[in-house]
Nucleic acid binder design. Structure first.
Lengths: 193, 193
DNA sequence: TGATTACTTGAACGATAGTACAACTAGAAC
DNA sequence: GTTCTAGTTGTACTATCGTTCAAGTAATCA
């Protein structure tokens, strides 16, 4: 929000700010009405600009959706990297991040799911959508070497987010952490039938 | 496909057949183009009927989407119930069902995810979307009494499906079963940091 | 200063959307 | 047969869509 460096290249700075505004507006629409509600017109109205200005920065709707998903993915990447590089209990950090999907992070999580689903059909979105899982896998890799344990933790994280978002499942951090712990731990028994 | 009982009430039978055809066409569209591609016109074209006939059976698009999701959910419910009531290894049966999402069941699974995502915003779809998770939970309840183990298995199942659908993760039945086993087993250790 | 460039606007084009509706068909009931 | 009704069609209305474009504004540069 601070206007430093505006003297250096004021035009570019203004343009980037506009881009960010439009992306924010897009995410607000995705959160409220789903990815299907994203049109140049709804986004422009949300951002308080004209429709043509939206197409000026994002020529096609796909460009806009890719940029929006990238923005969400970037946020998650930053969060997870902080957990990885931080000192504390990484599994607990992840559990907190997941539990946030029930509260302040619901918008972001919902937008991420919406756009990830879109990614199954739009190749341009696929690599961006993959980032979230890769980040979780990277975090898991700091806790174990077992590739199946890593896959299990990624699956559990994803499934817990879905449960919270779609099913309004309980989102207590300790509870989430306990379920994540199950996934990453090697089991000792084998269940038959 | 057999035309028995057509004498009894030919009109109603014909109508039900049409409804089923339209729902099938809708699922084909959802699979190919996503839920966003579902319009009365595209569905009608896919089903080989006129647009007005589609609106005759499903007055609004929401009705159509609810019916389509219900159909998918019914199929899954039947599958899972067969696994529950069957004699074999239930966890393996579930693993097979999930692994099918990479092959013959991909359409169905993709449609289910697409419509579930839609359910986060359309209240009419929410209870239907919940059914899949409830079925898995019911299966899990035959294997354990621990509610957290049940939640863990549901989350793992959901996350594995996502991994297969979005990430093209490996879908070997044994592999899936091993990861599911992790979730449902009580852990013996506790990991700190 | 004028020239340049990024930014912004309003209007418009063709395409497609949801939905409504009057007319037509065909099988069931009498 | 006639009547009735579920099924079916073609057409059309209005709204919104993505996208384009010529014209206008304002910040920067020489």
């Amino acid at each position: 929000m601070n206007d430093e460096s505006e003297h250096i290249d004021g035009r570019k700075a203004r343009g980037n700010r506009r881009r960010a505004e439009i992306i924010d507006a897009t995410l607000a629409i995705v959160t409220r009405d789903g990815a299907a509600g994203v049109t140049h017109r709804t986004v422009a109205k949300q951002a308080g600009i004209t429709t043509s200005l939206s197409t000026y920065y994002f020529a096609t709707l796909d460009d806009l959706l890719v940029a929006a998903l990238s923005s969400v993915a970037d946020t998650y990447t930053t969060c997870i990297r902080q957990i990885i590089d931080g000192p504390g209990d990484k599994l607990r950090g992840l559990a907190e991040l997941i539990a946030e999907s029930a509260g302040p992070g619901r918008e972001r999580a919902l937008a991420e799911r919406e756009l990830s689903t879109l990614a199954a059909r739009r190749p341009a979105l696929a690599p961006v959508a993959r980032r979230w899982r890769e980040n979780i896998a990277e975090l898991a890799a700091t806790l174990t070497d077992d590739p199946e344990a890593i896959a299990a933790l990624v699956a559990a994280s994803d499934g817990l987010c879905t449960a919270i978002l779609i099913d309004n499942a309980p989102a207590d951090t300790d509870y989430v952490r306990r379920i994540l712990t199950r996934a990453i731990h090697a089991h000792r028994d084998t269940v038959v039938s």
